[in-house]
């Protein structure tokens, strides 16, 4: 990332956040349906990010060692295991699966 790219990246992301945080807030505040939508939308986004980071490479959908690590992370998270532990075990699991030659 060059100096110009870094600057544009920082300014661009900041602008996106401020548009979200300020431009629409007055119009939508207090509406019950909107409140519920705003509770669900981050979950859709987070889930999509996890799916893309786990099951895709470039523009192709793939199943590799990452899926095993994330599956283990999902089980541990469901059992309310603390995040730091979840993350480390997920990484170790993925590394181990790769050691055995898959993905």
């Amino acid at each position: 990332m060059t100096a110009l790219a870094t600057l544009l990246f920082i300014l661009g992301v900041f602008a996106i956040r401020m548009v979200g945080g300020f431009s629409l807030s007055g119009v939508l505040a207090g509406n019950e349906r909107v409140t519920r939508l705003l509770l669900l939308m981050p979950l859709s986004i987070v889930s999509a990010v996890v799916a893309v980071q786990t099951f895709t490479k470039g523009t192709t959908v793939v199943l590799d060692a990452r899926a095993v690590g994330i599956a283990v992370a999902a089980i541990l998270s469901w059992r309310k295991v603390p995040l730091g532990v979840v993350v480390v075990i997920a990484a170790l699991t993925t590394a181990l699966v790769r050691q055995f030659g898959w993905g």
Binding site: L43, T54, R66, A73, T94
Partner: peptide, 22 residues
């Protein structure tokens, strides 16, 4: 970084929010 599984660290940190939504 893939050798030590660093590439799953990022999605794994979000997975809790996803599964608890279920």
């Amino acid at each position: 970084t893939a050798t030590i599984g660093l590439d799953v660290v990022f999605p794994a940190s979000f997975v809790g929010a996803v599964v608890n939504s279920l």
